[in-house]
Simulated scan of single mutants.
Amino acid sequence: MTGSRILALGGAHVDRRGRIHAETAPGASNPGSWFVEAGGGAFNAARNLARLGHAVRLIAPRGGDADGEIVAAAAMEAGVEDTPFTFLDRTTPSYTAIIERDGNLVIALADMELYRLFSPRRLQQRAVREAFAATDAVITDANLPAETVAAIADAARNNAKPAFGIAISPAKVVRFKESLPKLSGLFMNEAEARALVQSEPDDPRRWPDLLRSVGLACGVVTRGRHAVIAFDEAQAVMLAPPLLEVLGDVTGAGDALASGFMSAQLAGRPLGEALRQGAAAALIAVRSPLAVAEELEPDLLARVMGLVPDAEMLS
């Protein structure tokens, strides 16, 4: 596969997940274990895309601390060109979660203040302008402020480059609201789609119509274990991926789907095939204990696509 040049701007931070080993005892010390890895929607997608053979450049804010070194090491390991905005006196963004033995979330803390310093003004720097001019496509996420997301979409359009977005959460996806007509694709789950349209269809097959009505021309809506839906200006498709045992966890599965779908679209594949490739990338992700599966590569992706059925065309 001939890779594209891709510019990723957005979340690149550290995820910490603490799992309690026994029954949760509120207000007390609980035996458990920690798992620490790099994360962030744009960064997960960047690493997946690099593993699929694309030349990926990452621009994200970072602190001058040990967490920043974790992100830098993860970028190097995945083959991503890492060009951060570094704030030596700040801490790198992080997400810390405490999880019960059965996998349910007890509480989480998101320290994402540094992303607020990624202002639209930073896109005017010469190196960033040159990065937009040299890339084939742009991907960003809703960790960034709404005005920065809008400026990224504008810069991509001014350079005649497709721009893709990752929703992140129902609270954050609304940061894309003013930019929806300028996006070439937005990846979201149903809760995030509801936050955008402020309603829910009586039939999930109507998600494309609702999202088009708020200005989005192309998007993907994941629905947990249920069929995923993708649409563009001309058509819509639905795909029920095979149910496989989850050996790791679902962290990063949506970012993997976005990466596989985007990679296929940049290669000129039709909507249904792009969705199949996205679903295959997500299957690889959920079989891994990591947010970005180390074994992901084009040949494996092609083999796993053999497990994914054809997409159903929606009227």
Rank of each mutant, 00 (worst) to 15 (best):
M1Y: 15
L7I: 03
G18P: 00
G27R: 12
N48P: 06
L49D: 04
R51A: 09
G53K: 14
A55R: 15
A60E: 01
R62G: 04
G68C: 09
A72E: 15
A73P: 00
A74N: 09
A74V: 11
E77V: 07
A78I: 06
V80G: 02
T83D: 12
F87Y: 15
D89P: 01
D89N: 12
A108V: 00
A110S: 13
E113G: 15
L114G: 10
F118S: 06
R121F: 12
V128L: 13
V128Y: 01
E130H: 13
A133Q: 13
T135K: 11
D136F: 03
A137D: 05
V138E: 12
A142Q: 08
A142K: 08
N143H: 14
V149K: 15
A150C: 06
I152Q: 05
A155T: 08
A155F: 06
N159M: 09
N159K: 10
K161W: 00
A163M: 06
A163N: 09
F164L: 02
A171K: 12
K172C: 05
K172F: 13
K172R: 15
F176Y: 15
E178N: 12
S179M: 00
K182S: 14
S184P: 10
L186F: 14
M188G: 06
N189Q: 12
R194G: 01
A195E: 06
V197K: 13
E200P: 04
D203S: 14
L210G: 08
G215T: 01
L216G: 04
C218L: 11
V221I: 13
V221Y: 04
R223I: 00
G224P: 05
G224D: 11
R225L: 12
H226D: 14
A227Q: 07
I229H: 02
D232K: 01
D232L: 02
A234C: 05
P241G: 06
P242F: 08
L244S: 07
E245S: 11
V246C: 15
V246I: 14
A258R: 00
A258H: 05
A258W: 03
S263G: 04
G268L: 09
R269C: 03
G272V: 05
E273K: 14
G278W: 05
V286F: 03
R287P: 02
V292D: 05
A293Q: 02
E294I: 00
E294M: 07
E297A: 09
V308C: 10
P309L: 11
D310T: 08
E312F: 08
E312P: 07
